[in-house]
């Protein structure tokens, strides 16, 4: 009897032990999964940096960032024209795309009937998923010839790049801004309307200020997408490693030069391309930081 009871109690405790071990192992596995994101980020930094940093040491950070002379075969690695190119294309795309996107978002949230909204909103969100290479293809086939007809030249250049990129970031900015605008409490609108404000006065004075941080987030996100975008820009920009003098001149960006040169680059040339990748990585990280600071200041408010 006694022995039997003991045996039972032993197996009971073994069972519990087994469960505890199982829980511990699982906990460890889950923890390890969570660490993959951190590990991935660290590895990305490490491998891009290890392969890219030597060029900064060799050619000089200041020299690289301030020179436009990109002649990798002759050992000259000025990347200023790519930085200017990325900057110009991003700013141009934002100037074209952001007002359009935010305007469309306001329209959808404040003016459109529920039926129109229920069709257009998901359609815009779906279009945010179209691959960038398709936007680039559309640019080559449709936008470039139009620009060529209007401005002369080859049509491949800054203007085409900005237009294609603008079209591409509009769905993203519009969808996120619309979320921000439509989450403004209805009471704000009613309170304003009840004092005799016109619809536009209500939008301008109450709704937009209340949704401001959300809209800024959306634009910053669109900006991050624009800076990091490769294919769409590459396909229509003309890809000359010079600072564009006019709106229809060809240009290159930090992203496009990597794709263009990588297939045949070797030695210092390849190292320089990784160096450019590092610059891009730091840029994108600073956008994350910017969004974090923005959202933190919003919480503090």
């Amino acid at each position: 009897m006694l022995a039997g009871a003991r045996a039972a109690s032993i197996s009971q405790s073994e069972l519990e032990n087994h469960d505890v071990i199982k829980e511990r192992v699982l906990h460890g596995l889950l923890f390890a999964s969570a660490c993959v994101a951190v590990l991935g980020l660290v590895l990305i930094f490490a491998f891009v940096a290890v392969r890219g940093v030597p060029i900064f040491a060799k050619a000089g950070v200041v020299q690289m960032l301030s020179s436009t002379d990109w002649s990798p075969m002759d050992g000259r690695f000025g990347i200023l024209s790519f930085i200017v190119g990325s900057f110009a294309v991003t700013v141009g795309a934002l100037l074209l795309g952001a007002p359009l996107a935010v305007g469309a978002a306001i329209f959808l949230s404040e003016i459109a009937s529920p039926r129109v909204r229920s069709i257009v909103k998901p359609a815009v969100e779906l279009l945010a998923g179209i691959p960038s290479v398709v936007y680039g293809f559309f640019g080559v086939i449709v936008v470039v010839p139009q620009v060529r007809a209007l401005l002369g030249g080859s049509g491949f250049g800054l203007v085409s790049g900005c237009i294609v990129l603008a079209v591409m970031i509009v769905p993203t900015i519009a969808a996120i801004s619309e979320d921000a605008i439509s989450s403004v409490p209805r009471g704000f609108r009613e309170g304003s309307a009840a004092m005799g404000a016109t619809q536009w006065q209500t939008i301008k004075n109450v709704v937009l200020p209340a949704a401001r941080t959300g809209i800024v987030d959306a634009v910053v996100l669109g900006m991050g997408r624009a800076v990091g975008e490769t294919m769409a820009v590459l396909m229509v920009l003309g890809n000359a490693p010079v600072i564009p003098r006019g709106p229809s001149d060809p240009a290159s960006t930090l992203t496009s030069i990597i794709i263009l040169d990588m297939p045949y680059a070797s030695g210092d040339h390849q190292t320089a391309l990784f160096g450019i990748g590092l610059v891009l990585l730091l840029l994108s990280m600073s956008f994350v930081a910017a969004i974090r600071i923005l959202s933190r200041s919003r919480k503090a408010r």
Binding site: A34, C35, L41, L43, I44, G228, G277, L280, S284
Partner: peptide
């Protein structure tokens, strides 16, 4: 830290994932 890493990963340009893949998976 995990959240920051995930947010950062989400914002890494695809070309950088390509570069990393080339350096790490393909070569290393």
């Amino acid at each position: 830290v995990i959240r920051f890493a995930a947010d950062s990963l989400a914002s890494v340009p695809s070309i950088v994932f390509g570069l990393f893949g080339l350096a790490f998976f393909v070569y290393a």
